[in-house]
Write a protein that binds this DNA or RNA. Structure first.
Lengths: 341, 341
DNA sequence: CTGAAAGCGCTTACAG
DNA sequence: CTGAAAGCGCTTACAG
């Protein structure tokens, strides 16, 4: 078996130096020699040892990608789109799941592999990422956070969720809705606060107030941000006397659960209630009627991320953190409509 | 900045050799010295260069994982479960998407990184993997294929889809169904043939024949294995005079689309028609009623794969390919029920 | 515990 | 085009 350039050179019948020069595209070689080496590479499948290459000072051309989880389709979609873009630009990428408490080990692994940069995709436990960013800084390794706004000192590319919510509530206001039920939009995370501020700005622009025009229920025991939680919320809201006419959810799953929940109680969507999700995943097409949602613009996010990332590689670290907001896109479908008279 | 063991040793005030011995857990060192080095590692975050380590002959302890796509949740779930198990066993893993025609480049990348083994997860284009397996063999690198049965010479861990279909159709036969509509189960791929043979064996055990007891429609123009395709199939079947009473689908998406399609035409599920999916994804809980499906046993698959994989690493290549079938689990829900009289 | 030395697989001048 | 040499960052005997 051919293990090294030396083995390979012997096999081709050339000097190690010559083979190496062909491999690295150096000038001053006869076309015939180049062809001979390339054909032998095809035949034997020889690949130079990446470890030795890098030891000699070659860039690893590798980016480490940390994802919060592989169970959330939007996170995975961003990782996939980013990996593809990076590959087009000649960079390999390694995807690892960052479990809470496990970030240190993953970052160490990436650092030992001398990655050119590290990307974080998702919403991570408070504080965990901030420590890792400091570690990366010590090693002069650039980073980029995708999705999570508000980490101090972090270079960030994230969806403008406030804007998304403002557009969505604006759309419902145009249909005449004046009372909004919030589904799963509770808590104090940055992501929720951004949505709330977006809802508020749309309401205020119409002379309404957040406190006056929204209702929120939180049956904590069932909380899970999934279909079932949406269903439970719909049942709870259906019992209220001043039931809102429009509902906006934290995500598409909750919205679809709520939509089914309302339908099971014989409420018609959108005639009796309008329901909207967030993220615009494939599942939005599943219910009848299709779910109005807010698209995350995943491809644009990945493109922006790749561009910013490659601009950082091999340069001195940024002194000012970069923050780029991605504009979401409202996608109206038939789950939202005019208020019934 | 500390770049090498030499830098680091200077920083700690010890000889390079001594530090290296601490790093590699060699005996004959004073506890005090060990503590000194470990504390300095904590403080500085120093990690030895993985490339140099490996050049000195250390295992890379790295497994390359090729996935067919990151858009199919079951594929991603298997990759995630496998990555986790491998990490528990001390192995890192690199996930790359194998686009059609791009497999050679990915395998080369993995080989240049001297991975200990390569895993393929999903259903790949015919022939593409077979070539890569030969390449891996040349490099004495073990492999494992997850999901796709029937690749010559491949070590395989895959769901017993025939068994899953047999169990599912058996369940419907017990409810009294005698005519079955197939949704998206067409074509000649191994995976489809396995399902068909499973359906057939359940039917034959009851004295029925496949040709006599199944109906298949294939509105090719709409074919996509998604919700919408399921909906289209349901509409087509609803127009037939001898409409089957039970429907089994290629996957959960098609089944849910069909379920909604039937409901939109005022057919009641399961009173008028029973509908079943395959894979038992989260979305099975989304429709009303919940979708009967067949669980892929993803954790068991990942565990089995990890075990087989680690048994191959660092040994001579197997001469006989290994094939392990995973038993699926029928998950009955309310989308299937007795035949209406 | 130290320090000099060899070697892992590669690349890159350099003299021939 | 060849061949000997140095060096990337590490580990591992070895003599002190």
């Amino acid at each position: 078996m051919i293990h090294s350039v030396a083995d390979f050179a012997r096999h081709v019948g050339l000097a190690r130096t010559t083979v190496s020069r062909v491999l690295n595209g150096q000038p001053g070689l006869r076309p015939k020699t180049i062809a001979r080496v390339q054909q032998a590479m095809e035949r034997t499948g020889f690949t130079p040892n990446a470890y030795a290459l890098h030891l000699k000072g070659k860039r690893t051309a590798t980016i480490g990608i940390c994802v919060e989880t592989l169970l959330t389709p939007t996170v995975v979609a961003k990782a996939a789109a980013l990996q593809r873009r990076l590959r087009e630009r000649g960079y390999g990428s390694l995807i690892e799941v960052l479990e809470p408490g496990g970030s240190r080990r993953v970052i160490r692994h990436f650092l030992s592999l001398r990655v050119d940069a590290v990307v974080f995709i998702g919403h991570f436990v408070d504080g965990e990422i901030a420590d890792r960013l400091r570690e990366l800084e010590t090693h002069a390794t650039p980073h980029l956070v995708i999705d999570q706004l508000g980490i101090p000192g972090a270079n960030t590319v994230a969806l403008d969720r406030a804007r998304g919510m403002r557009d969505l509530v604006g759309h419902l206001l145009k249909y005449g809705h004046r009372m909004f039920g919030l589904l799963g939009i509770t808590g104090t995370t940055r992501s929720v606060r951004d949505r709330v501020s977006g809802i508020e700005s749309a309401l205020v622009a119409r002379g309404l107030t957040f406190a006056g025009a929204t209702r929120s229920l939180d049956p904590l025991h069932a909380r899970a941000n999934d279909f079932e939680y949406g269903r439970v919320l719909a049942r709870s809201f259906a019992r209220e006397k001043d039931r809102p006419t429009a509902f906006v959810a934290l995500n598409d799953e909750i919205a679809i659960g709520a939509l089914h929940g309302f339908q099971e109680l014989r409420l018609r969507v959108p005639r009796d209630v309008s329901v909207a999700g967030f993220n615009n995943q494939d599942i939005c097409l599943m219910p009848t009627p299709g779910l109005t949602s807010v698209d995350q613009q995943i491809q644009l996010t990945a493109d922006t991320a790749a561009e910013q990332l490659l601009a950082m590689v091999g340069r001195p670290l940024r002194t000012q953190p970069l923050v780029r907001l991605i504009e979401p896109l409202l996608v109206p479908r038939d789950s939202t409509g005019p208020v019934a008279r």
